[in-house]
Computed example of a mutant assay.
Amino acid sequence: MSLVIETDSEVVGYASGYRHVNLASCGQVALLDEIVINPALRGRGLGRILQKITKTGPARY
């Protein structure tokens, strides 16, 4: 899965990873490979939003 995060129609960050069923965990797990946020916008919680979406699925924030 690849996700982007936009502000004012400009891509300012992205995340890549995947979700799959893991038998040892008895359910789905999310593996996040990377998160990149524009350095000028770091510290605003954008990475946390991408982490949450990776875990729970897409929504509008």
Rank of each mutant, 00 (worst) to 15 (best):
G27Y: 10
S25M: 10
G47Y: 00
V21I: 11
T54D: 07
S16N: 10
G13Y: 01
K52A: 05
Q51F: 03
A30Q: 04
C26G: 06
N38Q: 05
Q51K: 13
R44Y: 12
S25K: 12
L50E: 02
M1L: 09
V29D: 09
R19W: 01
R60Y: 12
H20C: 11
R42Q: 15
V21Q: 06
L50R: 04
G47T: 08
N38W: 05
Y14E: 03
I5C: 05
T56V: 02
S25D: 13
Y18L: 12
V21C: 06
A40S: 12
K52V: 02
P39R: 08
L32K: 09
Q51W: 04
I49E: 13
E6M: 13
I49L: 15
Q28T: 12
A40T: 10
Y14W: 08
M1Q: 03
L31D: 15
G17I: 07
V12G: 10
I37G: 08
L50T: 00
V12F: 04
G17W: 03
S9M: 11
Q51I: 15
Y14F: 15
A24Q: 14
G57N: 10
K55I: 13
I5M: 08
R48P: 00
I37C: 03
A40N: 13
R42S: 02
N22Y: 02
K52L: 11
A59G: 09
Q28M: 13
